[in-house]
Amino acid sequence: MAKDVKPTRKELMQIEDRIELSERGHGTLEKKRDGLIMEFMDILDKAQDVRGDLADDYEAAQTKINMARAMEGDVAVRGAAAALQEHPEITTESKNIMGVVVPQIESSRVSKDLGQRGYGIMGTSARIDEAAEAYEDLLESIILAAEVETAMKKMLTEIETTKRRVNALEFKLLPELYENQDYIEQKLEEQEREEIFRLKKIKEKKEQEEKEARQAEADTGSTGEVDAEQATAGGVPGGD
């Protein structure tokens, strides 16, 4: 990764911005994950209770319907069920638990009284009433279990996603960004060192050149004096 990064100051600033954002995101996601887990534990307790009630209600309803089928006959039980006029209805809304949209199921016309079940009272028995009542209770439990367990599953999916995001930030993205940051910083420092060295070298070279130039100049000056002296000495004897 680091090899693909351009070691520029601009890139470093961008990476620093990303690190800051990722660290903030990591903290927030960690808090969200912990909150979701706490909410999930509450829902889990509720779901366990609801499951227990559902199993009890199912067993009770089966016992009642079995008794009704045995004592009244299948035909009578089927007939009483056929007379039902108002079938149960459910409506679903949604509520938000820490950003997770979970269903809220509202049921109506599930529990009925004797006059609402559709069958005539004079020709039926308490066994049919008790079986109907037990199944109404069971249906209520199923609806509640559907609501709680769907919420639980959605929370679980969200916890998993959040956990993956936290881990991705913690173990992948942030380490890479830190690595890139280090890489660029090192590169930049190296470049700085090279620059200083280069400048030093240039300066040295320049100084050397200047020195040489000065030397050369000095050398040139001393040679001229000697010639002049020689020229002066030669003219005098000729004047004799």
């Binding site: 007379a83 006029q85 559709g118 069958y119 005539g120 009272i121 004079m122 020709g123």
Partner: peptide, 17 residues
């Protein structure tokens, strides 16, 4: 009026009894 079978079933049972 009601759409429920209760009145008819009760009428039959009452007639019998």
């Amino acid at each position: 009026e009601t759409g429920a079978l209760v009145p008819l079933e009760n009428a039959l049972d009452r007639a019998f009894y």
